[in-house]
C-alpha cells in the first residue's frame, strides 16, 4: 500500500487541477483524473524512477447512461518491481467521448483501445489505426452501450413454437 500511496501523492503533486480524486475500496485504489491530464499522468507513472509503473494491464470502459458524465474509461497499471497495481479512471460526456490515446506510451494499448472504440464508440486521439476489431466491418452501432438492446430472439416454448417456427429464416440448399 505504501508504494500506491506514494504514487497517488506524486500524481497529486504533478497534475494539480487534473487530479480529481481518489477512492479506495477493498484495498484497491482508483485515481480519478480529468481527461486532459491523462497522458501526463501515465507518462509520469511510467517514467518516474521511484514509481516505475511499466505495464498496462487493462483498458476498458463502462457506460452509465442515462447519467452524465456518461462514459468512464478505466486503466490498470502495474509496477512489476514493487508488485502493486493502480487503477485510473477518466470520465467522459456522451456528446464528446474523446480521450488521448496511450499507444505512444504503452504499445499494448493498441488493441484494447480499438476494442473500446468498437464496443462503446469512444474515440482515441492519436491512435494509429482506429477501426472495428470484434464486430463485423459493416456493423452499425456500438453494442456495449446501455441504450443498445441485448438483441435476443424470443425463446420457443410449446405455446409459441409454431408461430416462431414460421418466422425463423431457415436456410435453403
Amino acid at each position: 500500500m505504501n508504494h500506491v500511496e506514494k504514487a497517488v501523492d506524486s500524481l497529486r503533486g504533478a497534475l494539480g487541477p487534473a487530479f480529481v480524486g481518489v477512492d479506495v475500496f477493498r484495498g484497491q485504489t482508483t485515481v480519478e483524473l480529468a481527461a486532459g491530464g491523462l497522458q501526463q499522468a501515465v507518462r509520469h507513472l511510467r517514467d518516474d524512477p521511484g514509481l516505475d509503473f511499466g505495464f498496462l494491464a487493462a483498458l476498458t470502459a463502462a457506460d452509465r447512461w442515462p447519467a452524465e458524465p456518461r462514459f468512464a474509461v478505466l486503466y490498470q497499471v502495474y509496477s512489476l518491481a514493487h508488485n502493486v497495481f493502480l487503477g485510473l479512471r477518466v470520465r467522459l460526456d456522451g456528446a464528446s467521448a474523446e480521450v488521448d490515446s496511450l499507444e505512444s506510451i504503452f504499445p499494448a494499448a493498441n488493441w484494447h483501445e480499438r476494442e473500446v472504440f468498437d464496443l462503446f464508440g469512444i474515440t482515441f486521439r492519436g491512435h494509429s489505426d482506429l477501426r472495428r476489431i470484434l464486430m463485423p466491418y459493416d456493423w452499425v452501432g456500438h453494442p456495449l452501450r446501455k441504450d443498445q438492446p441485448q438483441g435476443y430472439e424470443e425463446v420457443q416454448f410449446t405455446f409459441n413454437f409454431d408461430e416462431i417456427d414460421r418466422r425463423k429464416p431457415y436456410a435453403r440448399e
Partner: peptide, 15 residues
Amino acid sequence: FNNYAIVPGVDEVVP
C-alpha cells in the same frame, strides 16, 4: 447465448 453477436442456430445459414 441469446444476444446480438451469435446466430441462433446454424440452420439459419446451412441446412
